[in-house]
Amino acid sequence: MNPEDIKRPENKVYSRPELLCDVSMHYCPGCSHGVVHKLVAEVLKEMGVEHNCIAVAPVGCAVFAYNYIGVDWIEAAHGRAPAVATGAKRLNPDRLVFTYQGDGDLAAIGTAETIHAANRGENITIIFINNAIYGMTGGQMAPTTLEGQKTATTPYGRRVDLNGYPLKISNLLAQLDGTCYVTRQSVHTPAAVRKAKAAIRHAFESSYSGHGTSVVEIVSTCNSGWKMSPAKANEWMVEHMFEAYPIGDLKNTVEK
């Protein structure tokens, strides 16, 4: 069949999510953020909550997330998104409230806000992008940077005797009584993308229905920061990141 004959509206099986704003994202080519944005946009629309949703953007590469997903957004100071989300959710308890944060934002400067929001069991979802590096500021060491990994501030590789260990903050969060669902996913293959989407949906539904804090860590690439091609970065992630940050549910108290 001629491809042009196939391209009819009735044959369409995949299109750009409606909730994704019709603009080009500022992210580098191949960046995982774009895929996760797409999944969040799809899930919000499929749940029918796009007009009852408050999202909180971080400081980091995703600072402009509010330009890409067409819901109400608050842009938080670096690391403070869980506290900002707490204020928004407590005063608007019937809204779906989520934060979107990177590893530096969530696991370094915002550790206290993250741990305590989760420990209070705030009914918010935290979407956590772990790419083991500070992307926005030019590729410096993150709390999640792997041992031996070269970054702009660990040019000879991260040394645990100097910089401590890669922080497995999702494991920490899973220990807290306030979290209902903590999972670690990735978006490097079509199958992984499907699983990540299901995880985001379960997280949103669990917190929206009042079960406590949900956390979806997406083990991601930063090919610019890692100084690799996007495809090579995916391979490197599978080979190195998955050992420190294995994929799968860390905790789930809500029936899927």
């Binding site: 938080a76 403070r80 506290a83 900002v84 989300a85 204020g87 928004a88 407590r90 005063l91």
Partner: peptide, 12 residues
């Protein structure tokens, strides 16, 4: 630090 950011979120 958290309380002023909760204020920020609520006031927003």
């Amino acid at each position: 630090v958290a309380s002023i950011n909760m204020v920020y979120g609520g006031a927003s």
